[in-house]
């Protein structure tokens, strides 16, 4: 079950050794991490952010963090929003300029996010519940990307 998780698959952990033992000891955490991915990438209640748009934004955030393989995996589900997976596109063509700028800032310049960034989204007509949905998607990816990067380093050090 846990071995089906995106994080562990991305890293590719050998069946034995210290790293395999450590991840097996935290199997429930990897299962819950996968459940969290399902909740933010493919929720039952999408709100205005479709599964395709979420996948595109996830791919974009992975690329902003130099996680090319993860970006490719998410981009597969991006459909009509595939262009947004490229951080060079600002979302104007999709009518999502404010949303895309917000996601980039939260992902890569977190410390400088301020009240004006939230009021800017509200002024652009984004409902409060949908702002929370964007933040959760972004926040989960920050976590998942760092787990993958950390496991990759462990693979070199603790194999």
């Amino acid at each position: 079950m846990a071995l089906d998780s995106t994080a562990l698959k991305q890293v590719g952990i050998a069946a034995d050794g210290a790293l395999s033992e450590a991840t097996a000891g935290r199997a429930s955490i990897f299962e819950m991490t996968q459940a969290a991915e399902d909740a933010v990438l493919r929720p039952k209640d999408q709100g205005p952010w479709s599964h395709e748009l979420r996948a595109a934004l996830a791919a974009r955030i992975a690329r902003l963090n130099a996680e090319a393989d993860l970006a490719l995996q998410y981009a597969e589900g991006a459909g009509a929003f595939a262009d947004l997976a490229d951080p060079a596109n600002d979302g104007a063509a999709q009518g999502l300029t404010e949303v895309v700028a917000f996601m980039d800032k939260v992902a890569a310049d977190t410390r400088n996010v301020a009240a004006a960034d939230i009021s800017g989204l509200q002024a652009a007509g984004v409902a409060d519940a949908d702002i929370v949905r964007l933040a959760e998607l972004n926040a989960f990816l920050a976590y998942q990307i760092r787990v993958i990067a950390g496991l990759r380093l462990m693979k070199g050090a603790f194999a």
């Binding site: 033992e21 960034d117 926040a139 989960f140 950390g150 462990m154």
Partner: peptide, 27 residues
């Protein structure tokens, strides 16, 4: 050891998540 480093990765990464909610959605 490996179990400790994994827990460190998880806790630091988890706060990449928590910070992006707390610091972004409120003051």
């Amino acid at each position: 050891d490996a179990a400790e480093v994994l827990d460190l990765i998880l806790s630091a990464a988890l706060f990449g998540w928590a910070n992006r909610l707390m610091h972004v959605l409120g003051d």
